[in-house]
Amino acid sequence: MKIDHSLPLEYSTEENRLKIFGFWIFLGAEIMLFATLFASYFTLYNRTGSGPNGAEIFHITPVLLETILLLTSSFTIGLGVHAMRLGRQKAMMGFFVVTLLLGLAFLGVEIFEFVTYVHEGAGLQTSAFTSILLTTLGTHGAHVTVGLFWGLYILIQVKRDGLTPETGNKSFIFSLYWHFLDVVWIFIFSFIYLKGMM
């Protein structure tokens, strides 16, 4: 395998460059996936049937907490990738651990939020609005859950192998994924929660 040392670690081999490029294309597909969910949400959000509408079930506190947790985690993973490029494995791993913990906390709040919704009579089967709300949030939450496992696996591999072109590449791609989830959340926060609370 030819390693080009003039490039950052994650780009240093041909295979690495292909993987990063392919992942960007995958993110394009993910954008379409969430765009479809948002389009469906905007179609269905005032079709509440006999169930509650957004203003009745949304609470600012857990949502704000989730936003802070996820946005901070996006910042820390950025620091992690920066540390990786400086070759500082310990710092990189530290930032990744913080990122995953923040992600876990986010997920905890989201699960609490879902339980609250169901208690308030906004379950998956209540109305078209609650179905699409919980599906859109749930798809994002499922992505975060997968990301937690994925990030954990990468951490174990960095610990096992050190910072190699391979682990560097995986870490970088994971960071792209994580940032993407953050972007999706910004849309969820603005167009589902804030708009729904107005």
């Binding site: 479809t36 969910l37 269905l44 049937g49 006999s50 089967q125 209540t126 078209a128 179905s131």
Partner: peptide, 28 residues
């Protein structure tokens, strides 16, 4: 991805009783 989402919504309607494409409770 549009098909993925549509099929997932259809599956949930059939298996889990969601209300995406139903005739009442706001389904469309």
């Amino acid at each position: 991805p549009v098909l993925t989402v549509a099929l997932a919504m259809g599956t949930m309607d059939l298996l889990f009783g969601t209300q995406f494409f139903t005739l009442d409770n706001g389904g469309m």
